[in-house]
Each structure stands twice: as structure tokens, then as C-alpha cells.
Amino acid sequence: MTILVIAEHDNANLKAATLNTIAAAQKIGGEIHVLVAGSSAHAVAEQAAKAAGVAKVLLADALQMADSLAENVSAQVLQIANAYSHILFPATASGKNVAPRVAAKLDVAQISDIIGVESPDIFHRPIYAGNAIATVQSADAIKVITVRTTGFDAVAAEGGSAAVESITAVADSGLSSFVGREVAKSDRPELAGAAVVVSGGRGIGSAENFKLLEPLADKLGAALGASRAAVDAGYAPNDWQVGQTGKIVAPQLYVAIGISGAIQHLAGMKDSKAIVAINKDTEAPIFGVADYGLVADLFTAVPELASQL
């Protein structure tokens, strides 16, 4: 068995999600290769080669791979797919974009968002916003899988010494082109990988008031998150959204402030180690999953909490 892991990167740095995906590959067992498809991405390939457990890194370096267009990256994966028993993508926006395209071309079912590996062909995955866990078995010759990164502890980023091999990049599909990118700037830890997350909901009341969470997040070294209600109301940017349709997080500590706790939000954070809820509504469903609940007005409790840390 040889497993191919598709690296997530920005052409300069390997993203942490790749290390969680390699960990899932180790659970399946077999030789692990990593594909880096990018432009001027040699540094990424070097980083992938150092990751624990990686036997070989394949680098497809070409201009048409720069922006991870699904058409080009899927064609690149398909070119080498037949040498592998499993093809693993991190379940990030990028992995989810490409993986089903690869699966359909191989005429195999894709297994989304696995959180556990029982055997090389049996996997666990959440369904219905995480309200049920399905155990599924694949009979396909090549298993195309996306890996929920919070389901697997990342492998060490250092210590490996895999060889980097260049492979020929496939030609540009010509079907799509990249126009531009608006990156939300943030000095805080990345939401998906943060050890502490401080999230605000509709109860915060305005985009201005969201700044109230910053001193607390600074004290805790936390990433800032938001519920869908807060994002829709324009209090917080889209990519802060935690939930079924946003980011899935599992930090050591999750602080939910002014969040009622709809099913869709809980789906994104209920695997956190400790959950704190601050809400003035005693009946809010968030208290059903919180380890520590504080019924209080967030406008007094949050500054007080920040000052006591």
C-alpha cells in the first residue's frame, strides 16, 4: 500500500493541515508520499520532506499550479493516482474543492471529513452536523479521502528526511483562471489550529463591540471566531465562522460569548477540550455543552475576565 497526501500550502509555507493529514495516513499504514503542486514551491517541498513519516515528496512546479485551481490540481493528481491505494486531502476549502473531482474521474466514491481510521478500508465520519457518526466501508480500488484535521494529532514537522523528486506538471486546463484574492489580515493564531479560541455571537451587538473580545483574546493568545449570526450581521469577517458550514475547531479552550448555541454552531466546536459559555440567557443551548457556564452580561463579564487573567 502506498498513500498519497496532497499538501496544502501557499507556495512558500506548508500548512499545518498537511501534518494532520499525514497523521491520518500513518493510521492507515503504508508508505507515504506527499504531492506538492505549486509554483516556485521548492521551499514547501523541503518542509514536507522534513515531516515525520514521509517517504517521498513529489514536486510539480509550474506557473499553472500557482493558485491551486481545481481543474489543474486534479489533473496533476490523476496523472499519478494509479500508483496509490489511498489519496488523502486535508478537509480544507482547497482539499474539498479538488478531492471530489479526482474521485469522480477515477469513478470511485469519495469519503469526506474522516475523523477516525478503523482499517485501511473502514473509516469514521460525522453526518447530520456531527449529530451522528457513520462507520463506512469502501470497496473501491483507490480510496479518495478528505481528512478532518481536528480528528488527528499533527505529525512532527521536523525529523524526517524524505527525498524530493520533481515530476512533470500537467498543462493548464484553460477552463478557469485566477483573478484575485482578498486575504483577511490577522496577527492572531490561525483559527483552525489555535489552542484557544474566543468566539462571539449575535449577543455582541455590533462590529465595534467585537473589539471587546480582543483584550481577552490577547491575554489567552487566542484566535477569534464567530457564529453565523455574527458573521451575517456583519460583526465579523466570513472566515471567522465556526460551525457546520464554517471552520471546525477543537482547541484546548473554547470561549463562547453571546452565542446561543445552534446545532450548526455546535457542530464546529463541540470537540473542544474545555468549553466556557458566557451568556445572559440561562436557557441558551450552549450551556448544554459548556463545561463552565457563566450567566452574566458579557459587557461586564468579558472585561472582568480579561483583567483577571
Binding site: 485551481l69 480544507t92 482547497s94 483573478v179 482578498e182
Partner: peptide, 10 residues
């Protein structure tokens, strides 16, 4: 909508 922001494709 992608991780970290927005991107536009044609």
C-alpha cells in the same frame, strides 16, 4: 469563500 479570505476566479 476560502480559508483566510476570498478569491475570485474567471
Amino acid at each position: 469563500e476560502v480559508d483566510g479570505g476570498l478569491e475570485t476566479l474567471s
